[in-house]
């Protein structure tokens, strides 16, 4: 039981990292990205190849994965710089599929659809599975904390305020003398890098990756996390990811309790529960369970009526 709880906590934490990455792009800058798994795949494959083929240590692999994801994110953003909303969503969806197809076909590099197995995990050889899961959970939680702090800093920095402004109206940003395009590219690159980190972490956790892993289902789970938690709020992203995994996993135990239901119907029932839950949350809490704060942190709520005065101590 303990090992199971540890392992789903690891997965939930990795989902939370991805949700934070998405929040930089979508929540903060309003750039819809349905191609998250593409960035995750780039991070995972880069880290896997650097550690298995070149034999470099895992932190180096992860770092290389992040850099590769940053580059691919920036590139994607440059290509899609004129697109918004639904159009951007479709192109990013296509981007993720492109990455998956490249990974399936460039067999010399990625081993094709067979995938890469035997990706090293920290101290996996000397630890028992239970110890390994505990250690890995500690590592991913620390990294989640780090990413969270970075994202909070971004959110409440002048840079983050410009991203918010782009989300609300990018013409106004241009009028105010900011180059919106540069900010969008930066937001995409940072978000993509964070998602790439999550991809790398997943690869080193399960030791196996294949193109079939990086399908839109994962993107949807992450998007769901953010919707449930609250778009634009980093705390919401983490809470949302935890809720999605808890719902996904707890239905395993709940659905079999329903009488006269076959396992096949039960499997369908689990998907229904998840989507119904999302609909209910969106109906009654449109901004998610942890809605985005109305104002900048340094502005006290009671001062709102007096305008946006900075807080004084």
């Amino acid at each position: 039981m303990v090992i199971y709880l540890l392992s789903i906590s690891v997965v939930a934490t990795i989902y939370a990292v991805m949700a934070l990455g998405l929040n930089v792009m979508w929540g903060t800058a309003g750039l819809v990205n349905l191609g998250l798994v593409g960035s995750a795949a780039v991070g995972a494959y880069t880290s896997a190849l650097v550690t298995t083929r070149m034999g470099l240590p895992i932190p180096v692999g992860l770092l290389a994965g992040v850099l590769a994801a940053v580059l691919i994110g920036a590139l994607l953003s440059l290509v899609t710089t004129r697109l918004k909303d639904n159009y951007l969503a479709i192109v990013t969806l296509g981007f993720a599929e492109t990455i998956r197809i490249v990974a399936s076909n460039e067999i010399w590099l990625t081993n094709g659809t067979d995938g890469i197995s035997g990706i090293p995990g920290p101290l996996r050889a000397v630890l028992t599975p239970l110890q390994f899961n505990a250690l890995y959970l500690a590592i991913v939680v620390c990294l989640l904390g780090l990413v969270y702090v970075v994202c909070q800093r971004i959110l409440y920095s002048p840079f983050g305020r410009v991203l918010h402004a782009i989300r609300d109206d990018d013409v106004v940003v241009g009028v105010a003398g900011k180059n919106g395009r540069v900010f969008k590219v930066q937001a995409f690159a940072i978000g993509s890098g964070i998602v790439g980190l999550a991809g790398g972490l997943y690869a080193h956790y399960t030791s196996f990756i294949a193109p079939d892993l990086f399908v839109p289902l994962i993107t949807l789970y992450v998007k769901l996390s953010l919707l449930l938690g609250g778009v634009g709020n980093n705390r919401g992203a983490v809470v949302g990811a935890a809720i999605v995994i808890v719902v996904l996993e707890s239905t395993r135990f709940l659905v079999p309790l329903i009488p006269y239901i076959s396992p096949t119907q039960g499997a369908a029932m689990r998907e229904i529960i998840l989507s119904a839950g999302l609909l209910i949350v969106l109906r009654f809490r449109l901004k998610g369970l942890v809605p985005e704060a109305h104002d900048h942190l340094t502005v006290r709520p009671q001062q709102n009526t007096a305008g946006l005065r900075p807080a004084t101590t």
């Binding site: 199971y4 392992s7 997965v11 399908v215 396992p263 499997a267």
Partner: peptide, 20 residues
Amino acid sequence: VEDDQTNPEAAVRAAQKLVG
């Protein structure tokens, strides 16, 4: 019985539940 959803990520979680 667990559903692997024909997806490696979901399958790993399901397998962890079965063995754990």
